[in-house]
Structures are given as structure tokens and as C-alpha cells.
């Protein structure tokens, strides 16, 4: 007999993934008067969107992912539409291609995130180079991707704990 608590209606807590993803660029790009990650910060937004889309895709429908991406771009001063396009690509890769295996275990989730992060990084580099009409150095993009992959367990752990507390299902 399963000991999991299952709630069919999440009510106001359904906005948790949206709230977390919206706060991500604010937290990673805040000036604290000291340096958190040097020149390049990990993409907390990507980690959070990946986690929640792989766990609860219905709580982050495409329109919300679009808004999260636009918010991220406006906050950090990126070309508007860039992050939303990349995040929608991530959502499509997980949901449309049935990569639901990512939510089956922590390790699979980490490996899946690393693979998708590599793809997103490459796509971002190509898009930004196109926007700038100049082939940019790939190294800052790779550093950002590596930092994101390293940070994934911590953020996914917090998200998983919140998932259990709020929605009552433990996985992985």
C-alpha cells in the first residue's frame, strides 16, 4: 500500500513553479556587493523550468513558459524572445517528445538536464551569434552550462522537497 499523499487539487499552490521560475533571474542577477559566480552565473531559470516541466507539465503550459522567458530577457537585458524560445524548446523536448523518463529518478533527471542543457547552450550560442552578426566565443556559454549542470542537484533537491510538501508525491 502506498504511503504517498495525493492531492487532486493544488489550488493556489499551482503557481509555485511559475513563482520559482520568475524569481530565478532576479536571484541569479542580483547585485549583492560581492560576486557569487564570477562573470557568468548559472541559468537557474533553465533548471527550474526543466524540473517542473518534467514533473508537472500541466502547471507550466506553453504560455507561462513564454512569459517566464520574456521576463528573464527583460530583466537581464537580453534580446527579447531569446530565452522564451529556448525554454519552449526545452518544454517541447520533454513533453512533446515524451521524455518523461527524466522524472523517474534523480540521476536520470540530472543526465537528462545535462543533455538538454548542452543543446540549449549550443542553440543559444548560434542564436546570439546570429543576432550579433558575429561568431561569438563559445567558452562563456560552456562555462554557464557547466555551472548550471553542477548546480542542478541542489536546485532540483529543493524543488523536489517543495514538490513533496506542496503536492504530496515523492519521486526518484
Amino acid at each position: 500500500m502506498s504511503t504517498h499523499r495525493i492531492r487532486t487539487s493544488h489550488g493556489v499552490m499551482s503557481i509555485l513553479p511559475l513563482l520559482m521560475a520568475s524569481m530565478a533571474p532576479v536571484l541569479t542577477n542580483l547585485s549583492y556587493g560581492f560576486s557569487l559566480g564570477g562573470d557568468t552565473a548559472p541559468s537557474l531559470t533553465l533548471i527550474i523550468v526543466f524540473f517542473w516541466v518534467s514533473r508537472r507539465p500541466t502547471l507550466l503550459p506553453p504560455i507561462l513558459v513564454l512569459l517566464i522567458g520574456l521576463w528573464h530577457d527583460i530583466l537581464i537585458g537580453a534580446p527579447v524572445g531569446l530565452t522564451s524560445l529556448l525554454l519552449l524548446g526545452v518544454r517541447a523536448a520533454i513533453v512533446e517528445q515524451n521524455f518523461i523518463v527524466f522524472s523517474q529518478s534523480f540521476l536520470l533527471g540530472w543526465i537528462g538536464f545535462a543533455a538538454l542543457c548542452a543543446g540549449v547552450t549550443l542553440a543559444e550560442w548560434v542564436l546570439v551569434s546570429w543576432l550579433q552578426s558575429e561568431l561569438l566565443s563559445l567558452s562563456p556559454f560552456v562555462v554557464q552550462a557547466l555551472l548550471s549542470i553542477i548546480l542542478y542537484p541542489v536546485v532540483a533537491g529543493i524543488c523536489g522537497w517543495l514538490d513533496y510538501i506542496v503536492f504530496g508525491i515523492r519521486k526518484g
Binding site: 503550459p61 506553453p62 520574456l70 527579447v80 524572445g81 524560445l85 542564436l127 543576432l131
Partner: peptide, 28 residues
């Protein structure tokens, strides 16, 4: 449908920003 619309909006904004240099600055 909402996914396709969201993709079109993102792409449209990106392309518009590429054509019009001031677009991103004005939005921000």
C-alpha cells in the same frame, strides 16, 4: 495551439529585435 503561438511570438520578437535595433531598448 498555444505552444505554436508562443513559438511564433518568441521568434517574431527575436526577428523584430534583429531588424529594429531600438526595439529591445524600447521594451526594456
Amino acid at each position: 495551439a498555444s505552444f505554436i503561438i508562443a513559438i511564433f511570438i518568441s521568434l517574431g520578437l527575436l526577428i523584430f529585435g534583429k531588424i529594429d535595433d531600438d526595439f529591445n531598448l524600447q521594451v526594456q
